[in-house]
C-alpha cells in the first residue's frame, strides 16, 4: 500500500493538471528504507510530449546526487497519462528501473486542465511484473 499525505497528493494532481495535455512527471523522495514519501520534486518532462515522458538527464543526475547526500531514495515515481487510463503502459513497464518505488499514474483524460476528479493509482513494477496497490491519502504521515 502507498500511504501519502494530502498535501503531496494534491500537489501531484495539480502538476498533472497544469501540464496537461503533456505528460507530467516527478518523484517524492523519502529517507532510505522508510517508505515515507516526504519531499515532492517536480521534474521537467524533457520529452515535452502527450505520449512520452523522460526526466532530463542532467536534472536526473542532480536529483540523485541530492538524494544520495540526504540518504534518500525515490519512494514515489509519478507521471500522468493524458488520454488513457492510469495504468502502466508497456513502455512504462519496460523502462521501470526502481523496484523499490511506488509507481504512481495519474490520468487527466477526463478533465484535462480543469477542476474535477482524476484517476490516481499506484503500482509496484518489478522484473516486468505489475501489481496494483491501494492508496491511502492521510492528513499527515504517521
Amino acid at each position: 500500500m502507498l500511504s501519502i499525505d494530502r498535501t503531496t497528493y494534491d500537489a501531484i494532481v495539480a502538476h498533472a493538471k497544469r501540464d496537461h495535455p503533456d505528460e507530467a512527471c516527478g518523484i517524492v523522495a523519502g529517507p532510505e528504507g522508510s517508505d515515507r514519501p516526504e519531499r515532492h520534486v517536480e521534474m521537467v518532462n524533457a520529452a515535452g510530449s502527450p505520449t512520452f515522458y523522460e526526466f532530463d538527464p542532467t536534472e536526473l543526475l542532480e536529483l540523485y546526487k541530492q538524494m544520495w547526500d540526504n540518504d534518500e531514495e525515490p519512494v514515489v515515481i509519478y507521471h500522468s497519462h493524458t488520454a488513457t487510463e492510469a495504468y502502466p503502459s508497456r513502455t512504462d513497464i519496460g523502462l521501470a528501473s526502481e523496484p523499490g518505488a511506488h509507481y504512481v499514474l495519474v490520468s487527466t483524460r477526463e478533465h484535462g486542465n480543469n477542476d474535477g476528479p482524476v484517476e490516481f493509482r499506484s503500482y509496484r513494477i518489478v522484473d516486468g511484473e505489475v501489481s496494483e496497490e491501494d492508496v491511502a491519502v492521510l492528513d499527515a504521515l504517521p
Binding site: S49, F52, F55, P57, T91
Partner: peptide, 8 residues
Amino acid sequence: LPAVAGGC
C-alpha cells in the same frame, strides 16, 4: 543511472 522514462 537508468533513465526515468515511459510513455503511453
